[in-house]
Design a protein around this nucleic acid. Structure first.
Lengths: 152, 152
DNA sequence: AGGTTCGCATAGCCCAACTATATAGCCGTG
DNA sequence: CACGGCTATATAGTTGGGCTATGCGAACCT
C-alpha cells in the first residue's frame, strides 16, 4: 500500500473515530480541553505559546483555553521567574483527575464497540499508538523551540 | 495494558493527529466535508438521515452539509422514487476527484512526518486502520436501520 | 535610552455542531 | 377517504472552538 493512501485512510478513520467518541459520551467538554491536559500531562509544564504550538492551535486560542481551564482549577498559571511576560502552565491534580475520569467514561461508552478485541488486535492498536505518538512528538520538536535540537 | 487505557490513548493521539492534519494543509475545507464524502464512497448512496446517523452528526447538520456539497457539485441529490419526502445522496465524480486530491495534498503535507516508516510500521498502521474500520462499521449497523440485520 | 522583538491578551469574525421546531409526505384506521 | 400520527427533510437560532489582526507591556540589543 502506498504511504499516501495509508495516511489518507488513517486520517479518515480518525475523523470517524473522533465523531464516535464525541457522540458516545454526552459529555459537555470539548476535545480541546482533553487534548490540552493530555499534552501537559505527557510533556510537563510549559509556556503558553509553546503549549499552543505543540497543541497545533493558535496562541489566542490557547489563551482562551488556558483561561477557561484555570477558572475550573484544572491548570495552574505560574509566573515565570525569568520573564515577567510569560507564564508556565502546569496541570493541577484536579485537572488530571478530570482527565482520568473522562478516559474512564469514554472507555465505558466505547466498550461495546471494542470489548471483543483479542490480544493480537490490542497489541496492534497499542503499537500503532506508539508509532503515531513518536512521529507526532518528532513533529513537535520544531515547535518546542526553547531547546534547539543538538545536531549530532 | 487495560483496554480502557488503550482507548483513552487512541482517542488522545487521534485528537493530536487531527490537529496536525488540520494545520498541515492550508486547506479551506472542513473535516466534515471529507468525512461525508468518504462515507458515501465507502458505503454507497443513502438517504440523508441515514448518512447523518452513520456520520454521527445530527440530521440538521447533515442537511446543511449536503446542501453545501450539492452546491459545489460534489454530491448528487436524487429524488427517492418510493418516498417523495426523501432523497438519495450519492457522490458525484467531481466529489470523488476532490476527495482524492485532498488525500494527496494531505499525504504530501504529512510526508515529512511519516516518510521514514519502515515496512513493519506501515503494516502495523494498516492493520490498525482495518481493525478500527471494522469496529466502526459494526457500530454503524444499528444506525443503518433500513435493512435489519439478518439474524442467522 | 530608544527602537525592535517577543509573549500574552483582547476584539471580532467564521463555521461546524447542537436543540427545537416547522413543513410536507407516508400510512394505518374507522 | 379523511384524519391522526409518524417519518424525512428543512429552517431558525445558539453555542463554542478555531482563526486573523491588533494591542500592550516586558525583554533585548545596539
Amino acid at each position: 500500500m502506498r504511504t499516501s493512501d495509508l495516511i489518507g485512510d488513517l486520517v479518515s478513520v480518525n475523523h470517524r473515530l473522533t465523531r464516535l467518541a464525541a457522540a458516545a459520551t454526552d459529555n459537555a467538554e470539548s476535545p480541546a480541553v482533553w487534548r490540552t491536559l493530555s499534552v501537559l500531562r505527557d510533556l510537563g509544564p510549559m509556556r503558553l505559546g509553546e503549549l499552543a504550538r505543540v497543541s497545533r492551535v493558535s496562541q489566542p486560542t490557547m489563551t482562551k483555553l488556558v483561561h477557561a481551564l484555570g477558572d475550573r482549577g484544572w491548570v495552574r498559571r505560574i509566573p515565570d521567574a525569568d520573564d515577567a511576560r510569560a507564564w508556565l502552565i502546569s496541570t493541577d491534580p484536579r485537572g488530571l483527575a478530570a482527565l482520568a475520569a473522562w478516559r474512564e467514561e469514554l472507555a465505558g461508552a466505547l466498550a461495546p464497540t471494542f470489548d471483543d478485541l483479542d490480544d493480537a488486535e490490542r497489541a496492534v492498536l497499542a503499537q500503532a499508538v506508539d508509532i503515531l505518538r513518536s512521529r507526532l512528538e518528532r513533529a513537535d520538536q520544531p515547535a518546542r523551540a526553547t531547546q534547539p535540537a543538538a545536531s549530532a
